[in-house]
Design a protein around this nucleic acid. Structure first.
Length: 564
RNA sequence: GCGCCCGUAGCUCAGUGGAUUAGAGCGCCUGACUACGGAUCAGGAGGCCGCAGGUUCGAAUCCUGCCGGGCGCGCCA
């Protein structure tokens, strides 16, 4: 589906299989199929367009020298004369690599494919409609979203898009931690601020939430519900503030995410899970399966049977459930909804919970592989070479809203995505704001806008852009042009790889590379020139680049502007 | 102490089994069309890939040990 490289790989592999068969080596190998043949992009043009080290890998199995194997295979591959569409020449090189040199036909096919597929170019059905539940952010509803949440949002939303494009059925979910004592603390904090606002003499406790947003909520409560509040007894008022503060916080979090272009399919309430008795039920089930025991007045889960270093408590001696018990119930609920795989994005501070949670699922009889946890590393904000200090205790932290206000959603999304998930991220605020070549977001968007500008220019000159698809591409012979087309060719593979490896940053880098190739081309050759055929071919090439830049930016949640 | 992650150019990072020259961006130095958007481009300097062993035809990449950094190791969430 819209991947010319797949067709090329198939042609190469079937050639190899045929070569192995005719030289009598295939029968020495068991269950050997095309999939067992690695086909690699070459780094140097002298090594052809694609290469395979298959002869080196088979040397041990067929007990011959790699070069001999390679020679034998190559002798039996028939190229040209209608036997192959793409392969033009094959050679054995180095220790036994087989290099494939392709005709320009394949590059022209790539261009046609991009132009035909348009916004669909890069999609595949690789994921086989596997059902995936991707849970991310899930911040406590006790404060505004911070920049760590922002990184999780950017990465999670990007990953969801990438996996959807790769043929997975992905649902995104936000777990609302609306049960437990923290909500009481939130409610009480707001209530006390409310009393303060009314002029009562209260000492705000150290354990309360200190941020100014608490006062804002209290003020809202007073403005909107002042009269009702007067008539409440203390119990009613406490309950009111719990509910009011929670719904305000959730609304603010949704707003922040929405400004960031991140939406969730499901907001899943912990409280509803608890109220439905799901935690109690899962503990009963674990007891029935003989996975628990009592000790020191508490109920323990035998997580050591599933690789944990010690058993964990499910029910505390005071009768309360632990966080783990709730989480096991929650993940069981997820699996009962029919998902094949659960992917969670957690902060590095939760990494001690991965094994116990998975052990809980295994204790219930689910395979451990049904839960995959991506640990997203922290990030630090840099400004003018200095680290921006964030102290939660003092209530001073940079929020997700601050970040979006400061650098804009596009730059924020890109910067938060551009590093490996498990690497610490240094976010340079000054750079993210800068409108120059130093800023990768603008560099990429500029390529997109520049192409749009060229198209406007062309149309002003009376050129009909609808003729692009039928253009004669034979005039595209410059190195920079062919490099661009090779880059376009690899895009579907790049998307698939970043889905498989859960590496959205890979596509951030791809976009930068592609934009760079285009800028380079643009500076050395004129798109609109005296030769109408060449002009049309270069417009088609530019159009293909613009399509792929728009597609990749789309997957990353970044806009692709026509002018800047 | 144990576990997980990271260690690659002055800085921030790609590359995680393949080709006797390890890539990009920033920063630094030198240059570029009175023509499609200079938010661009071309060139240059800059690297015992943390250290030491091992596996392999081949290691920045896999294994072991060590050094340095981050995070975890609650009947907290």
């Amino acid at each position: 589906m819209y991947n010319v490289v797949d067709d090329v790989r198939h042609e190469i592999r079937s050639g190899i299989i045929a070569g192995l068969a005719r030289s009598g080596m295939l029968e020495m190998l068991e269950d050997f199929t095309e999939r067992d043949i690695p086909v690699e992009y070459t780094r140097e043009k002298a090594h052809g367009d694609f290469a395979t080290p298959i002869a080196l890998a088979l040397a041990g199995k067929v007990k011959r020298k790699p070069r001999d194997i390679a020679e034998a295979i190559v002798d039996h591959i028939e190229t040209g004369r209608g036997n192959t569409r793409y392969i033009q020449r094959v050679e054995v090189a180095g220790p036994g690599f087989i290099n494939f040199f392709l005709g320009r036909e394949w590059l022209e096919d790539v261009l046609r494919t991009v132009l035909e597929a348009g916004s669909k170019y890069g999609r595949s059905d690789m994921g086989n409609s596997k059902r995936i539940l991707l849970e991310f952010v899930s911040a406590n509803p006790t404060g505004p979203m911070n920049i760590v949440n922002a990184r999780a949002a950017a990465v999670g939303a990007g990953l969801a898009m990438i996996m959807k494009a790769s043929g997975y059925q992905v649902a995104t979910e936000y777990y609302v931690n609306d049960a437990g004592n923290q909500i009481n603390v939130l409610g009480t904090s707001c209530e006390l601020r409310y009393l303060e606002l009314k002029g009562e003499d209260v000492t705000f406790p150290e354990w309360g939430y200190q941020g100014s947003y608490i006062i804002d909520i209290a003020r809202q409560a007073m403005d909107k519900h002042g009269r009702e509040l007067e008539g409440m007894d203390s119990e009613e008022r406490a309950e009111f503030f719990r509910d009011f503060a929670l719904s305000r916080m959730l609304a603010d979090q949704k707003d922040s995410l929405s400004r960031f272009g991140v939406e969730f399919d499901v907001w899943f309430s912990e409280r509803k899970l608890v109220d439905a008795g799901a935690v109690g039920k899962v503990i009963e089930l674990l007891e029935q399966r003989d996975m628990t025991y009592e000790a020191d007045g508490a109920l323990w889960l035998r997580t050591t049977e599933f690789g944990d270093e010690k058993d964990r408590v499910l029910v505390k001696s005071d009768g309360d459930y632990t966080y783990l018990a709730g989480d096991i119930a929650y993940h069981k609920n997820k699996l009962e909804r029919g998902f094949d795989l659960l992917i969670n994005i957690w902060g590095p501070d939760h990494h001690g919970h991965v094994i116990p949670t998975r052990a809980g699922l295994e204790a219930l009889g689910y395979p451990g592989s049904s839960l995959e946890v991506l640990l997203l590393q922290f990030l630090s904000l840099m400004s003018g070479g200095e680290r921006v200090k964030m102290s939660k205790r003092a209530g001073e932290f940079v929020t997700m809203d601050d970040l979006i206000d400061e650098v804009g959603s596009d730059a924020a999304r890109y910067f938060l995505l551009m590093r490996n998930i498990e690497s610490h991220l240094e976010f340079d605020l000054n750079l993210a704001k800068e409108h120059s070549q130093a800023n990768p977001v603008y560099y990429i968007q500029y390529a997109h806008a520049r192409i749009s500008s060229i198209f406007r220019q062309a149309e002003d000159g009376g050129i009909n852009l609808h003729d692009m698809k039928g253009a004669d591409f034979s005039g595209l012979t410059e190195d920079t042009e062919l490099d661009i087309i090779r880059k376009l060719a690899s895009y579907p593979d790049e998307v698939a790889m970043s889905a498989i490896e859960r590496t959205p940053n890979r596509l951030a880098g791809y976009a930068l590379d592609l934009a760079g190739l285009f800028h380079s081309f643009y500076n050395s050759h004129r798109v609109i020139n005296e030769d109408p055929d060449l002009t049309m071919a270069r417009l088609a090439l530019s159009g293909a680049v613009r399509t792929v830049i728009a597609n990749v930016l789309g997957l990353l949640g970044i806009s692709a502007p026509h002018e800047m």
